[in-house]
């Protein structure tokens, strides 16, 4: 793509590095910003810079946070006896949006994957045991993706925590709500049949 201005070209190149944005969309964003008042571009760049400088990771659960301790860990209304283990803070957003969980989280920061060079010691695993004792956790929910690496990680954590005699659960797998039965993949449907539930 040819640009009449070097300044626009630079800006487009930077914006098009963002995920899901190509050159054309980047140009659209840049031209839009140019049309707005100068103040709005300033606000945007300030917001981004502050975000970058001020963002922290919660010292307890490794969630993304404004302070040393994240709002979930700091909250007094959360149930500290249920600890939900997730791969990344993105999963926290997903679970929080369901509004079905009132416990606390622990972010692993990855999954065990020897092929990608990720070993258990590269994850935030050591602090789990301490947290369990500190919060007197009664139940662990393993909310990791149902992939090979997810299974390995879940298995590893279960074995590690075995002697603590906790209730360890994992997310149910089944037919998506609003989905058509005939289009559900065989493995999911098979599991759903095996772990069917009572119809009340």
């Amino acid at each position: 793509m040819n640009f009449p201005s070097k300044l626009i070209e630079n800006a487009v190149n930077e914006v098009s590095k963002l995920p899901g944005i190509g050159k054309k969309s980047a140009l659209r964003v840049i031209l839009y910003l140019l049309k707005q008042e100068e103040k709005s571009t300033e606000n945007l760049s300030v917001a981004l810079q502050t975000l970058r400088k001020e963002i922290k990771y919660c010292k307890k659960c490794y969630n993304i946070s404004d302070d040393e301790i994240c709002s979930i860990c700091a909250s007094k209304t959360r149930d500290n006896t249920i600890l939900c283990i997730v791969e990344s803070f993105k999963d926290i957003f997903a679970i929080e949006n369901t509004a079905q969980f009132r416990g606390v989280y622990h972010v692993l920061g990855g999954l065990i994957s020897p092929m990608d060079g990720i070993a258990p010691e590269d994850l935030h695993l050591d602090s789990i045991t301490e947290r369990i004792k500190e919060l007197s956790v009664k139940e662990i929910i393993l909310a990791v993706s149902p992939t090979m690496e997810g299974d390995t990680t879940a298995f590893y954590i279960t074995k590690k925590l075995k002697e603590l005699n906790l209730k360890i659960t994992t997310l149910a797998r089944g037919v998506p709500v609003g989905g058509e039965l005939e289009y559900t993949d065989e493995i999911t449907l098979g599991r759903s049949i095996l772990s069917r539930i009572n119809y009340d």
Partner: peptide, 24 residues
């Protein structure tokens, strides 16, 4: 493959984690 990479890494770093192997 994952188990073999893990075994290799144990040997290189001179560590051992039985639970990790069991996971595979």
């Amino acid at each position: 493959k994952e188990r073999n990479i893990t075994l290799k890494r144990f040997a290189e770093k001179n560590t051992f984690d039985a639970i990790l192997l069991e996971s595979f």
